[in-house]
Design a protein around this nucleic acid. Sequence first.
DNA 1: ATAGGGTTAG
Length: 607
Amino acid sequence: MFPKSLAVSRNISNFIRNLSGLSRLCSSSITIAESPCPPSCDVVVIADLIEKQHWSKLGVHVKDINPNELFRQLISSELDPDLCLRYYTWSVKNRNISVSLELTFKLLHSLAIAKRYSKIRSFLDGFAKDDGSDHPVHSILHAISMCDNVCVSSIIADMLVLAYANNSRFELALEAFKRSGFYGYKLSALSCKPLMIALLKQNRSADVEYVYKEMIRRKIQPNLFTFNVVINALCKTGKMNKARDVMEDMKVYGCSPNVVSYNTLIDGYCKLGGIGKMYKADAVLKEMVENKVSPNLTTFNILIDGFWKDDNLPGSMKVLKEMLDQDVVPNVITYNSLINGLCSGGKISEALGMHDKMVSAGVQPNLITYNSLINGFCKNDMLKEALDMLESVKGQGFVLTARTYNMLIDAYCKLGKTVDGFALKEEMEREGIVPDIGTYNCLIAGQCRDGNVEAAKKLFDQLTSKGLPDLVTYHILMESYCSKGESRKAAMLLKEMSKMDLKPRHLTYNILMKGYCREGNLKAATNMRTEMEKERRLRMNVASYNVLLQGYSQKGKLEDANILLNEMLEKGLVPNRTTYEIVKLEMVDKGFVPDVEGHLFNVSTKS
DNA sequence: ATAGGGTTAG
């Protein structure tokens, strides 16, 4: 206890030495308020009261002193910054004062000099949380810059970025990061990491890349984590070459790529479009093995999923064999992926076999496993089996969701048994499962297929009052109107959907353009194109060109079609099989050879 | 810091 009281008395004597300002303040308040000034011994008591946390007594002693001025004096004195902070917290809470940013950060600076970092951290944490008295980031950085010790300012700016990122205020974190650069503050990878992770989660890959480049420019050494986050951001946006460059950068900075780095890269290739992507994914696998990094469960799962989605089920099976050979144990993700692959390839009995295999391997199937199997049955004309499985899943005590029922309702509707679809919807409601928009979409699509657009529209209108319809609902109805030669009615829905705050997509406009083309109304179709292009985010894509191309060539306007074709190629758009078929069927077969024939044929024969 | 999955429109 002795050393502690010694520290207290030292605090207080420092404090008294700096009191001249405060007594001046007090004497001036005498002349105005004509109330007795607290004698300086009272002020010694103030410091003592803060130290001892006798707040109610303190309240009495300082009630005639301007709290902001007292705070200013406390900061300027050499009083222990911890005590200043205590006074600050108390007076903000109990005396409702608002301290200027400049003074606040002066306090944080003295805390930083005293190395009270955790105190600063929790202070800034509260600061970042507080959305009532938000200060603009530029003002905060200005306040930070009032201290001439750049190191101390850097530390505080760094903690500010971290505090914002930890409190989900990513916009502010990014702004603080940017502005710190203008002031030349050196931040740490510790704060950059949560910022980058947050930006990645919001799919803001370009911003992740920006932060990374800034780190390099500002000579902030990235660590393995931050490198992997950047690689992930680049892979997600298909910038595989840039991702590989970052892998090379890592080595320069003395970091070796680990399993996560390689897995991320492999996944990037798997999710890339185009030919030969799995070949590249496989090459990365070989590369990682060469670099003595062993593939793990995640690696194999990524590859299994990648192969069957690339229409290469045997590839998936080979990976399965490979992982078993290496004694890597498949988990529920592995089996679900395989079951999905088998079902999508129509191999239902093999999928069931895989289910048995997982059970005997001691891996518990989950609801997704069963939904995949039910979906497999539904899509392969095995409704009876699907219904049986539904019952068995119910019997196992799984809590079903609307999704399970939606697949079955859709199967009924596609068999032309829309009535049974509605009956199943009622059954699910009796079981306490609320139909979602997917349920209604299946039913509405069913009614449309039955040629009963009126009934579909009626159901749609009921949903509209509840704000339920989504983009898919609108697309189903639009398609239906268009196929009946009522494209104008479909176009009316376009206006309605914007009122419902739904943003049209390429597909939306393509449906409408296709409708008008089918009616031979090329002018209306072209107007639709103009409408679409008014929205800057929607440029003509290959599908849009295909629609118009088909419209023009079917009307025998082959020159116009050719102009369109050239336009699309000039934009660097790659024609697909549909493009090829239209050109072949409508143009080449009718004796018209497009200018771009050679190019077109070269590209399309590959896919 | 990396992997998965189910419905409806195309």
